[in-house]
């Protein structure tokens, strides 16, 4: 009688299937440690970012400014490093400043959204333009390169064969997982996303919890921006373009509901890794990156439609039951 619980095992199964398919199609190229570390390196920025934006998704919000905030903070860290004389100390100040900018941006999002009850979609759409403009202002609309060793180390240094960003991703995932899974704040985030009215009646400060989520999203976006700038040894207003979609896609594939209340950090990281494998696989198959969107888009539609169908099945069954039993739902 036990039904196979698809939703529980589907994610690891998809990953395994992916690995198997790629191993068969491109055994030599895919199954090397080097490639493995490459995959992780390329997913690390998405992974870092999704660790914070998952908070926003969990309360039913969205952040369309990820890409340009990433650019803006990347520019901030690079410009400050230059301004203070390219010393390791300057790099530190730059990093702190960029993180502060990210947190502040998130706070502004949260404040506007909760105070005026405006859809997150609109607010972050507008700030997206603002961050882009600010990044362009700071760089004079040019690419600013930065080869200060202390800075490039962030993206390039390897420990035990894996680049530093991979460890960043892991640390962020652990922190994010810890907050969501272990702290009172994390419990409140799920509660607010699941039912904000019941949360308020249970004494939760809904507005404060929501603003916190946007701040965390801003922070990880900034960290992503710093890492990306360091990896590419440069920053410009187009740093991180495309990342908004990638991060949202990673979340959605990872089972994070954009309606709020559902989703886990391991799921989101899974989404990021799958995106990375997808990118890597397409790359190994010599599919240009510009074509990858086709596959990514179809993957999202199939994943979500499948999910929606299961939900519809359940509610249909329930509706039939109600008609028969006359339960009030």
């Amino acid at each position: 009688m036990k039904e196979f619980n698809w939703s529980k095992y589907s994610k690891p199964l998809i990953l395994v299937a992916f690995v198997v398919i790629l191993s068969i199609l491109r055994p030599k190229a895919f199954l090397s440690l080097n490639n493995f570390s490459n995959v992780l390196w390329s997913v690390s920025v998405i992974g870092i970012m999704v660790c914070g934006t998952i908070f926003v998704f969990l309360i039913g919000g969205i952040d369309l400014s990820i890409a340009t905030l990433c650019a803006f903070t990347a520019v901030v860290v690079v410009e400050i490093t230059h301004l203070l004389g390219d010393t390791p100390v300057a790099v530190c100040v730059g990093v702190v400043a960029a993180l502060a900018v990210g947190a502040l941006a998130g706070a502004v999002h949260g404040l506007i959204i909760t105070t005026f009850h405006i859809p997150a979609f609109l607010v972050t759409f507008a700030t997206q333009s603002i961050f882009l403009g600010l990044a362009m202002v700071l760089t004079n609309n040019k690419i600013v390169s930065c080869t200060v060793p202390a800075f490039t180390a962030i993206g390039a240094m390897k420990i035990l064969g894996f680049p530093l960003p991979v460890y960043f991703m892991l640390v962020m995932a652990v922190i994010s997982w810890f907050i969501l899974r272990k702290t009172v704040y994390g419990r409140y985030v799920y509660a607010v996303g699941g039912n904000s009215m019941a949360s308020a009646i249970s004494g939760i400060h809904v507005k404060g919890v929501s603003i916190g989520c946007y701040v965390l999203s801003g922070l990880t976006t900034a960290l992503g921006g710093i890492v990306l700038a360091s990896m590419t040894q440069q920053a410009s207003s187009s740093t991180g373009s495309g990342y908004t979609n990638d991060v949202i896609t990673a979340g959605v594939i990872g089972g994070v509901s954009l309606l709020g209340g559902e989703g886990t950090v391991p799921g989101a990281i899974f989404g990021a890794v799958l995106m990375g494998l997808l990118n890597n696989g397409l790359n190994l198959m010599s599919v240009p990156s510009t074509h990858a969107g086709l596959v990514k888009g179809l993957v999202i539609i199939v994943a979500v439609a499948f999910d929606a169908m299961q939900h519809a099945d359940q509610s249909k069954k329930k509706a039939r039951k109600v008609k028969k039993r006359g339960e009030s739902v």
Partner: peptide, 25 residues
């Protein structure tokens, strides 16, 4: 995608956005 497969509007058109762009390329 939206009316028949019941994919939420935002996600569905976000997905087709990358699909159409990729097809363009």
């Amino acid at each position: 995608v939206i009316a028949k497969l019941h994919v939420p509007e935002f996600i569905g058109t976000l997905a087709t956005m990358s699909i159409y762009r990729a097809l363009t390329y």
